[in-house]
Amino acid sequence: MTKLPLGLCAATLVFGWLLASPSARAGDTSAGSDVFKTECSECHSVKQGRNKKGPSLFGIVGRPAGTLPDFSYSDALRQAHWLWTAEKLHSYLSQPAKQANPGTKMKYDGLNDPKQLEDLISYLGTVH
């Protein structure tokens, strides 16, 4: 059996991981805007400084969770100490919010359509 060079194996693994990574699978931001309007916009605004029942999602990707100064977060989210990376958003939004962050105020059943989730996260990445 022919052995593959170690470097090629490593490159294949890294490339495969990148392909599988949510951040690498760029979604359709236009479709994501529609997903946002359907799934999120009643409780969240993308305008800077505009909070609804939920905090503004302006600049959400890369923001430490629970840190907007003028929004009253749940203790659960303030103490989560996580960063809203694309990967974290993917994990958080793909399941019920109460499961992803027990004690959160957020009422959301999760988005189980992978394409819509990718599109949504891509769109949120443009909101800054």
């Binding site: 916009s41 009643e42 409780c43 605004s45 505009r50 909070n51 609804k52 029942k53």
Partner: peptide, 8 residues
């Protein structure tokens, strides 16, 4: 009160 738009 809600910060929401009327259209929500």
């Amino acid at each position: 009160q809600t910060g929401a738009a009327c259209a929500d």
